[in-house]
Amino acid sequence: MATTTAPQLTAKTYKSEVHNDWCPGCGDFGIVIALQMALAKLQITPHNVAVVSGIGCSGKTPHYMGTYGFHTLHGRVLPSVTGLKLANHRLTVIGVGGDGDGYGIGVGHFVSGGRRNLDFTYLVFNNDVYALTKGQASPTIEKGKKTKSMADSSIVEAINPVALALASGYTFIARGYALEVKYLANLIAQAIQHRGSALVDIFQTCPTYNDLHSKSWYEGKDSGQPRLYKLDESDYDPVVHDPNDRAEVAQKKAQALLKSEEPSGRLPLGVFYQLEVPTYEDCLREKGVLGHEPQARLGAVFQRDIQPLLDRLA
């Protein structure tokens, strides 16, 4: 849980002094600013936040944050988040990674991380390409498409992150757009506040390698109609109001799935699905495994009495 202090924290508080080496115009700038704004909005003390990344351009995010920062391994954002969160469940733990990281090499962890329902937030910087290795096809590139960085067009189906998250058991599923920073900041804040596994899939423009899904494409300059629209501007209600009502859960999942595959080709932003159920930590607490204090601060574990266990072996 977040610790709050007097409201003096601004987005700048969460910025580090490190020189940023993302390409000029990269969508990642929007995401990191949105994350800083979200933390400021929630007034979470920087030392109670840990940002945990994988490998790739997005992997550098922790360095640009003025919080605890862990730049881990390719595809291992969620195992890393899980270990850290179990060591100290009071931390606000935010995983960040690319689409290749989360939906490609780390997809097994993506599924298991979701169904465990640990209280974390996971931001996926989704730009359809492996940018840091110069733009190969990622799991989210559409079948038949070819960016200028690809040698040939893709012949495999794209992953649908929202559908995958629904099937995996994420209890908060949202989508943002890197260039709508305020809106994204608000989504990230909601994801942080959600108790449980929260995914925010973020359309991120890559001006260097992805010429297909550019700013003007998202704005619909080619078709005359913006591709993006906001779910919260309609009567769409993503929230499961009675988690014990299996029919409602199924209905809310079904509508989220339909929204993620809209035949018009329009792309909704906003919260697709939200369900409040006990988290992994809650379940551990109920079993008496986790206490109120984080594991990392439990001095008592060093005073454990193993004599009763040895007595049983005598």
């Binding site: 270990g83 850290l84 060591a87 097994g108 962890h109 008496g288 495994v289 990392a296 454990r304």
Partner: peptide, 30 residues
């Protein structure tokens, strides 16, 4: 012994996750 001794035992999806989670828990202070 989990409840008796405040030890979290995490069954992971594979051994990659098992070691990486353990590395981060060590960084986290346990």
């Amino acid at each position: 012994q989990q409840s008796q001794y405040n030890l979290v035992v995490l069954q992971t999806e594979d051994e990659v996750s098992a070691i990486d989670a353990a590395v981060m828990a060590a960084h986290g202070g346990v």
